[in-house]
């Protein structure tokens, strides 16, 4: 079934633009504090450890394990109606951060199960997704 209403498109904030540009290159990039090295996500202005605003962006592997999930059975935006039911997984990344993504596994997610990242092609940005490792 074709989607009559388009899904909401990401509107990158200035502070997060390198994250979105990274996705377009096929990378999951997070902020790394240039002063103390602490990683952070979602992108924000300051390092909460040392308050520096200096940032290097670092590509991470996207490996981790399942922290929690939900299965959506109701479309709160008509753009998702054709995809119901779909599963959203919260991932505890190996680098100590979290990510939300779409679940590509055939089975119901199991909390604690290892996963790998998959960037599903899409316009204008790929969809951050995860599959069983």
């Amino acid at each position: 079934m074709s989607e009559l209403v388009p899904k909401p498109v990401p509107v990158p904030s200035a502070v997060a633009l390198p994250y979105w540009e990274g996705l377009q290159r096929g990378e999951f990039c997070v902020q790394r504090c240039a002063a103390c090295g602490t990683l952070r996500h979602y992108p924000r202005l300051l390092c909460r450890e040392c308050f520096s605003d200096a940032v290097d962006w670092q590509a991470i592997s996207g490996e981790g394990h399942i922290h929690s999930y939900t299965v959506a059975h109701y479309a709160y935006h008509p753009g998702f109606a054709a995809e119901l039911p779909y599963t959203l997984v919260t991932i505890e990344l190996t680098v100590g951060l979290r990510a939300l993504g779409r679940w590509l596994g055939a089975e119901v997610p199991q909390i604690g199960a290892p996963v790998r990242m998959v960037l599903v092609p899409g316009e204008p940005y790929p969809t951050l997704s995860f599959a069983p490792a």
């Binding site: 990401p10 904030s13 922290h67 939900t70 109701y74 709160y76 779909y86 919260t90 779409r102 940005y125």
Partner: peptide
């Protein structure tokens, strides 16, 4: 910015995990 485009649209979905 980061979750709505994936389909995490409303409180029911956001709180469910």
């Amino acid at each position: 910015e980061f979750e709505y485009p994936l389909g995490n649209c409303a409180p029911a979905q956001i709180y469910a995990p």
